[in-house]
Protein backbone atom coordinates (compact mmCIF):
# COMPACT_ATOMS: atom_id res chain seq x y z
CA UNK A 1 0.00 0.00 0.00
CA UNK A 2 1.78 3.06 -1.18
CA UNK A 3 0.05 5.28 1.25
CA UNK A 4 0.72 3.26 4.26
CA UNK A 5 3.17 5.28 6.19
CA UNK A 6 4.88 2.82 8.37
CA UNK A 7 5.10 -0.75 9.25
CA UNK A 8 4.43 0.08 12.83
CA UNK A 9 1.01 1.44 12.22
CA UNK A 10 -1.25 -1.33 12.79
CA UNK A 11 -4.36 -2.50 13.98
CA UNK A 12 -6.86 -5.11 14.17
CA UNK A 13 -10.30 -5.29 15.27
CA UNK A 14 -12.49 -7.92 16.47
CA UNK A 15 -15.94 -6.57 16.33
CA UNK A 16 -16.62 -9.63 14.70
CA UNK A 17 -19.41 -11.22 16.51
CA UNK A 18 -21.99 -8.68 15.64
CA UNK A 19 -20.67 -8.63 12.16
CA UNK A 20 -21.28 -12.23 11.79
CA UNK A 21 -24.68 -12.06 13.26
CA UNK A 22 -25.42 -9.51 10.72
CA UNK A 23 -24.02 -11.52 7.94
CA UNK A 24 -26.26 -14.32 9.06
CA UNK A 25 -29.41 -12.44 9.61
CA UNK A 26 -29.54 -9.65 7.15
CA UNK A 27 -30.54 -10.23 3.61
CA UNK A 28 -27.52 -9.17 1.71
CA UNK A 29 -27.86 -6.36 -0.73
CA UNK A 30 -27.25 -7.17 -4.33
CA UNK A 31 -23.58 -7.79 -4.63
CA UNK A 32 -21.11 -9.23 -7.03
CA UNK A 33 -20.37 -12.92 -7.00
CA UNK A 34 -17.09 -12.38 -5.30
CA UNK A 35 -18.67 -10.47 -2.44
CA UNK A 36 -21.12 -13.19 -1.80
CA UNK A 37 -18.25 -15.45 -1.05
CA UNK A 38 -16.91 -12.90 1.35
CA UNK A 39 -20.21 -12.85 3.14
CA UNK A 40 -20.21 -16.59 3.42
CA UNK A 41 -16.85 -16.37 5.08
CA UNK A 42 -18.09 -13.73 7.42
CA UNK A 43 -21.07 -15.83 8.32
CA UNK A 44 -18.71 -18.51 9.44
CA UNK A 45 -16.73 -16.18 11.61
CA UNK A 46 -18.91 -16.05 14.71
CA UNK A 47 -19.10 -19.76 15.30
CA UNK A 48 -15.46 -20.06 14.38
CA UNK A 49 -14.42 -17.57 17.02
CA UNK A 50 -15.95 -19.54 19.81
CA UNK A 51 -16.08 -23.10 18.60
CA UNK A 52 -12.57 -23.52 17.32
CA UNK A 53 -10.03 -24.88 19.77
CA UNK A 54 -6.54 -23.56 19.43
CA UNK A 55 -3.45 -22.31 21.16
CA UNK A 56 -1.04 -19.68 20.01
CA UNK A 57 0.56 -16.31 20.47
CA UNK A 58 -0.77 -13.14 18.93
CA UNK A 59 0.36 -9.56 18.81
CA UNK A 60 -1.85 -6.56 19.00
CA UNK A 61 -0.56 -3.17 18.00
CA UNK A 62 -2.11 0.23 18.03
CA UNK A 63 -0.31 3.49 18.09
CA UNK A 64 3.12 2.68 19.37
CA UNK A 65 1.78 0.13 21.81
CA UNK A 66 2.42 -3.47 20.98
CA UNK A 67 1.06 -6.20 23.21
CA UNK A 68 1.79 -9.84 22.84
CA UNK A 69 -0.46 -12.45 24.38
CA UNK A 70 -0.41 -16.19 24.60
CA UNK A 71 -3.79 -17.81 24.29
CA UNK A 72 -5.33 -21.21 24.74
CA UNK A 73 -8.94 -21.53 23.68
CA UNK A 74 -11.02 -24.63 24.01
CA UNK A 75 -14.57 -25.40 23.04
CA UNK A 76 -15.88 -28.52 24.66
CA UNK A 77 -19.38 -29.62 25.53
CA UNK A 78 -20.80 -26.29 24.56
CA UNK A 79 -18.56 -24.32 26.87
CA UNK A 80 -15.86 -21.87 25.93
CA UNK A 81 -12.77 -21.83 28.07
CA UNK A 82 -9.81 -19.68 27.40
CA UNK A 83 -6.71 -18.35 29.05
CA UNK A 84 -4.66 -15.41 27.96
CA UNK A 85 -1.24 -14.71 29.35
CA UNK A 86 0.44 -11.38 28.93
CA UNK A 87 3.83 -11.80 27.34
CA UNK A 88 5.13 -8.27 27.87
CA UNK A 89 5.60 -6.11 30.90
CA UNK A 90 4.36 -7.50 34.19
CA UNK A 91 2.82 -10.88 34.72
CA UNK A 92 -0.84 -11.11 34.13
CA UNK A 93 -3.49 -13.34 32.75
CA UNK A 94 -7.14 -13.49 31.94
CA UNK A 95 -8.98 -16.75 32.35
CA UNK A 96 -12.49 -17.31 31.16
CA UNK A 97 -14.70 -20.28 31.72
CA UNK A 98 -18.04 -19.85 30.10
CA UNK A 99 -19.24 -16.54 31.40
CA UNK A 100 -16.92 -16.45 34.37
CA UNK A 101 -13.90 -14.26 33.92
CA UNK A 102 -10.89 -14.02 36.18
CA UNK A 103 -8.26 -11.37 35.57
CA UNK A 104 -4.91 -11.51 37.25
CA UNK A 105 -3.19 -8.37 36.24
CA UNK A 106 0.05 -6.68 37.07
CA UNK A 107 0.20 -3.25 38.60
CA UNK A 108 -1.64 -1.09 36.09
CA UNK A 109 -0.24 2.23 37.02
CA UNK A 110 -2.81 3.71 39.31
CA UNK A 111 -5.81 2.53 37.41
CA UNK A 112 -7.73 -0.14 39.18
CA UNK A 113 -9.15 -2.55 36.71
CA UNK A 114 -11.92 -3.62 39.02
CA UNK A 115 -13.37 -0.18 38.69
CA UNK A 116 -14.16 -0.85 35.14
CA UNK A 117 -14.95 -4.49 34.81
CA UNK A 118 -18.60 -4.52 33.96
CA UNK A 119 -21.01 -6.33 36.16
CA UNK A 120 -23.73 -6.30 33.56
CA UNK A 121 -24.53 -8.81 30.89
CA UNK A 122 -22.68 -7.20 28.09
CA UNK A 123 -22.57 -10.28 26.01
CA UNK A 124 -26.32 -10.35 25.84
CA UNK A 125 -26.57 -6.71 25.11
CA UNK A 126 -24.24 -7.03 22.20
CA UNK A 127 -25.47 -10.32 20.92
CA UNK A 128 -28.98 -9.00 20.76
CA UNK A 129 -27.94 -6.26 18.46
CA UNK A 130 -28.54 -7.53 15.00
CA UNK A 131 -27.13 -4.74 13.04
CA UNK A 132 -26.91 -4.59 9.32
CA UNK A 133 -23.15 -4.35 9.00
CA UNK A 134 -23.30 -4.85 5.29
CA UNK A 135 -25.26 -1.69 4.99
CA UNK A 136 -22.29 0.28 6.27
CA UNK A 137 -19.43 -1.78 4.92
CA UNK A 138 -18.76 -3.29 1.54
CA UNK A 139 -17.49 -6.85 1.87
CA UNK A 140 -14.92 -8.02 -0.61
CA UNK A 141 -12.90 -11.14 -1.07
CA UNK A 142 -9.42 -9.82 -1.62
CA UNK A 143 -7.38 -12.95 -1.98
CA UNK A 144 -5.50 -15.68 -0.22
CA UNK A 145 -2.49 -15.60 2.00
CA UNK A 146 -0.69 -17.49 4.71
CA UNK A 147 -0.62 -16.44 8.36
CA UNK A 148 1.06 -18.24 11.23
CA UNK A 149 1.50 -21.28 9.06
CA UNK A 150 -2.12 -21.53 8.00
CA UNK A 151 -3.71 -20.78 4.68
CA UNK A 152 -6.11 -17.91 4.96
CA UNK A 153 -8.56 -15.91 2.93
CA UNK A 154 -8.36 -12.18 3.07
CA UNK A 155 -11.58 -10.23 3.33
CA UNK A 156 -12.03 -6.50 3.12
CA UNK A 157 -14.83 -4.56 4.75
CA UNK A 158 -14.70 -1.15 3.26
CA UNK A 159 -16.55 1.62 5.01
CA UNK A 160 -19.27 3.10 2.87
CA UNK A 161 -18.92 6.55 4.39
CA UNK A 162 -16.23 8.62 6.06
CA UNK A 163 -17.66 8.28 9.54
CA UNK A 164 -16.05 4.93 10.17
CA UNK A 165 -12.89 3.02 9.46
CA UNK A 166 -12.49 0.12 7.09
CA UNK A 167 -11.49 -3.33 8.24
CA UNK A 168 -9.61 -6.22 6.81
CA UNK A 169 -9.89 -9.77 8.11
CA UNK A 170 -7.79 -12.84 7.51
CA UNK A 171 -9.68 -16.07 8.17
CA UNK A 172 -8.14 -19.48 8.41
CA UNK A 173 -9.50 -21.58 5.56
CA UNK A 174 -10.58 -24.76 7.24
CA UNK A 175 -12.13 -23.32 10.39
CA UNK A 176 -12.84 -19.69 9.57
CA UNK A 177 -10.90 -18.58 12.63
CA UNK A 178 -9.82 -14.97 12.63
CA UNK A 179 -6.03 -15.02 12.58
CA UNK A 180 -5.24 -11.49 11.57
CA UNK A 181 -7.07 -8.22 11.24
CA UNK A 182 -6.52 -4.59 10.41
CA UNK A 183 -8.42 -1.43 11.07
CA UNK A 184 -7.70 0.88 8.22
CA UNK A 185 -8.08 4.58 7.86
CA UNK A 186 -9.93 6.48 5.23
CA UNK A 187 -6.71 6.49 3.28
CA UNK A 188 -6.16 2.82 3.78
CA UNK A 189 -3.24 2.96 6.15
CA UNK A 190 -3.25 0.48 8.98
CA UNK A 191 -4.20 1.92 12.36
CA UNK A 192 -4.57 -1.20 14.44
CA UNK A 193 -3.24 -4.64 13.87
CA UNK A 194 -4.03 -7.99 15.36
CA UNK A 195 -2.18 -11.09 14.26
CA UNK A 196 -1.28 -14.54 15.39
CA UNK A 197 2.44 -15.14 15.13
CA UNK A 198 2.17 -18.76 16.13
CA UNK A 199 -0.93 -20.86 16.03
CA UNK A 200 -1.94 -24.43 16.48
CA UNK A 201 -5.52 -25.37 15.79
CA UNK A 202 -6.12 -28.49 17.82
CA UNK A 203 -8.73 -30.06 20.05
CA UNK A 204 -6.00 -31.42 22.25
CA UNK A 205 -5.87 -28.76 24.94
CA UNK A 206 -5.36 -29.95 28.49
CA UNK A 207 -7.18 -28.55 31.51
CA UNK A 208 -3.88 -27.38 32.93
CA UNK A 209 -3.44 -25.00 30.07
CA UNK A 210 -6.64 -23.27 31.04
CA UNK A 211 -6.00 -22.89 34.76
CA UNK A 212 -4.92 -19.71 36.51
CA UNK A 213 -1.23 -19.94 37.23
CA UNK A 214 -0.15 -16.45 38.07
CA UNK A 215 -0.09 -15.25 41.63
CA UNK A 216 -1.51 -11.82 42.09
CA UNK A 217 -4.48 -9.64 42.56
CA UNK A 218 -7.47 -11.45 41.18
CA UNK A 219 -10.59 -9.87 39.88
CA UNK A 220 -13.54 -12.13 39.25
CA UNK A 221 -16.74 -11.44 37.42
CA UNK A 222 -19.58 -13.57 36.37
CA UNK A 223 -20.84 -12.05 33.19
CA UNK A 224 -24.05 -14.01 33.16
CA UNK A 225 -25.06 -12.95 36.65
CA UNK A 226 -27.04 -9.89 37.54
CA UNK A 227 -29.20 -10.16 34.53
CA UNK A 228 -30.65 -6.76 34.25
CA UNK A 229 -34.32 -6.28 33.61
CA UNK A 230 -33.45 -3.51 31.23
CA UNK A 231 -30.43 -4.06 29.08
CA UNK A 232 -31.39 -0.98 27.14
CA UNK A 233 -28.85 1.77 27.38
CA UNK A 234 -29.57 4.55 29.76
CA UNK A 235 -28.83 8.01 28.63
CA UNK A 236 -30.01 9.63 31.78
CA UNK A 237 -30.17 13.34 31.56
CA UNK A 238 -28.67 13.63 28.13
CA UNK A 239 -29.33 12.79 24.53
CA UNK A 240 -27.28 12.39 21.42
CA UNK A 241 -28.48 14.61 18.63
CA UNK A 242 -26.29 12.99 16.04
CA UNK A 243 -24.52 9.73 15.47
CA UNK A 244 -23.24 8.22 12.26
CA UNK A 245 -25.83 6.19 10.42
CA UNK A 246 -26.03 2.67 11.71
CA UNK A 247 -24.54 3.26 15.14
CA UNK A 248 -27.02 2.00 17.69
CA UNK A 249 -26.89 2.07 21.47
CA UNK A 250 -25.28 -1.23 22.32
CA UNK A 251 -24.75 -1.63 26.03
CA UNK A 252 -24.71 0.23 29.27
CA UNK A 253 -21.67 0.03 31.44
CA UNK A 254 -22.56 -0.71 34.99
CA UNK A 255 -19.51 0.67 36.66
CA UNK A 256 -21.81 3.31 37.99
CA UNK A 257 -19.36 6.12 37.90
CA UNK A 258 -19.86 7.78 34.62
CA UNK A 259 -22.76 8.18 32.36
CA UNK A 260 -21.56 6.04 29.54
CA UNK A 261 -23.35 4.50 26.64
CA UNK A 262 -21.75 2.40 23.97
CA UNK A 263 -22.79 2.67 20.35
CA UNK A 264 -21.95 0.17 17.68
CA UNK A 265 -22.61 -0.32 14.01
CA UNK A 266 -21.89 -4.00 14.47
CA UNK A 267 -18.23 -3.70 13.65
CA UNK A 268 -16.94 -0.49 15.15
CA UNK A 269 -17.96 1.00 18.46
CA UNK A 270 -17.65 4.15 20.44
CA UNK A 271 -18.56 5.00 24.01
CA UNK A 272 -19.96 8.31 25.14
CA UNK A 273 -19.28 9.47 28.68
CA UNK A 274 -21.17 12.43 30.08
CA UNK A 275 -20.21 13.66 33.51
CA UNK A 276 -20.06 16.71 35.63
CA UNK A 277 -16.68 18.27 35.13
CA UNK A 278 -14.71 17.11 38.11
CA UNK A 279 -11.78 18.63 39.86
CA UNK A 280 -9.49 17.33 37.18
CA UNK A 281 -9.24 19.80 34.36
CA UNK A 282 -9.03 17.88 31.11
CA UNK A 283 -7.81 19.44 27.91
CA UNK A 284 -10.42 19.49 25.19
CA UNK A 285 -9.76 18.03 21.79
CA UNK A 286 -8.91 14.72 20.22
CA UNK A 287 -6.17 12.24 21.05
CA UNK A 288 -5.46 9.09 19.16
CA UNK A 289 -3.97 5.72 19.93
CA UNK A 290 -3.96 3.71 16.76
CA UNK A 291 -7.55 3.51 15.63
CA UNK A 292 -8.89 4.64 18.97
CA UNK A 293 -9.90 8.27 19.22
CA UNK A 294 -10.55 10.03 22.50
CA UNK A 295 -12.40 13.28 22.10
CA UNK A 296 -13.08 15.46 25.11
CA UNK A 297 -15.30 18.50 25.08
CA UNK A 298 -16.79 20.69 27.77
CA UNK A 299 -20.12 22.35 27.94
CA UNK A 300 -22.01 24.55 30.33
CA UNK A 301 -25.56 23.76 31.28
CA UNK A 302 -27.41 25.99 33.69
CA UNK A 303 -24.10 27.39 34.83
CA UNK A 304 -22.68 23.99 35.59
CA UNK A 305 -19.70 22.58 33.71
CA UNK A 306 -20.05 19.17 32.13
CA UNK A 307 -17.50 17.04 30.38
CA UNK A 308 -18.34 14.90 27.37
CA UNK A 309 -15.86 12.24 26.32
CA UNK A 310 -16.17 10.08 23.25
CA UNK A 311 -13.88 7.05 23.04
CA UNK A 312 -14.00 4.75 20.09
CA UNK A 313 -12.56 3.26 16.98
CA UNK A 314 -13.86 6.02 14.77
CA UNK A 315 -12.14 8.88 12.94
CA UNK A 316 -11.49 12.01 15.01
CA UNK A 317 -13.98 13.99 12.97
CA UNK A 318 -16.70 11.51 13.85
CA UNK A 319 -15.83 11.54 17.54
CA UNK A 320 -15.89 15.29 17.55
CA UNK A 321 -19.22 15.49 15.85
CA UNK A 322 -20.70 12.98 18.25
CA UNK A 323 -19.32 14.79 21.29
CA UNK A 324 -20.66 18.08 20.10
CA UNK A 325 -24.09 16.62 19.54
CA UNK A 326 -24.54 15.69 23.19
CA UNK A 327 -27.30 17.71 24.74
CA UNK A 328 -27.91 17.70 28.45
CA UNK A 329 -31.57 18.08 29.19
CA UNK A 330 -31.70 17.20 32.85
CA UNK A 331 -28.87 18.28 35.07
CA UNK A 332 -30.59 16.72 38.05
CA UNK A 333 -29.99 13.28 36.58
CA UNK A 334 -26.32 13.77 37.30
CA UNK A 335 -26.77 14.35 40.99
CA UNK A 336 -26.44 10.68 41.73
CA UNK A 337 -23.41 10.37 39.52
CA UNK A 338 -21.17 12.59 41.55
CA UNK A 339 -17.73 11.25 41.80
Amino acid sequence: MVYSLAISRFLRRGRVLALVLVALCVPAPVVADQSRTAEEWLAQLAPALNMTSYRGVFVYARGDQVSSLQIAHRYRDGMVEERLVLQDGGNGEIVRKGMRVVCVLPEQGHVQLDQVIPSGPFAEAFANQLMPVMQWYTPELIGEDRVAGYDVVKIGLKARDEHRYSHRLWLEKSTGLLVKSHVRSLRDSVLEHFQFTSLEITDDIADAELAVQTQGYEIKRDLSAEASPSPAPRMEGWVLRWQPDGFMPAATPRSGKGRAVAFSDGLAAFSVFVERAGRIAMPTGASRIGATTVYISQLQVAGQPFMVTVVGEVPPATAKKVAESVEIDDTMAFETAKR
Partner: peptide, 12 residues
Amino acid sequence: QHNSVGAGRGAV
Protein backbone atom coordinates in the same frame (compact mmCIF):
# COMPACT_ATOMS: atom_id res chain seq x y z
CA GLN B 1 -14.58 -3.34 28.34
CA HIS B 2 -17.63 -2.67 26.29
CA ASN B 3 -16.01 -4.55 23.48
CA SER B 4 -13.95 -7.19 25.13
CA VAL B 5 -14.49 -9.45 28.04
CA GLY B 6 -18.21 -9.38 27.99
CA ALA B 7 -18.76 -8.92 24.35
CA GLY B 8 -17.76 -12.40 23.38
CA ARG B 9 -15.60 -11.23 20.58
CA GLY B 10 -12.80 -13.63 21.23
CA ALA B 11 -9.15 -12.97 21.77
CA VAL B 12 -9.08 -9.72 19.91
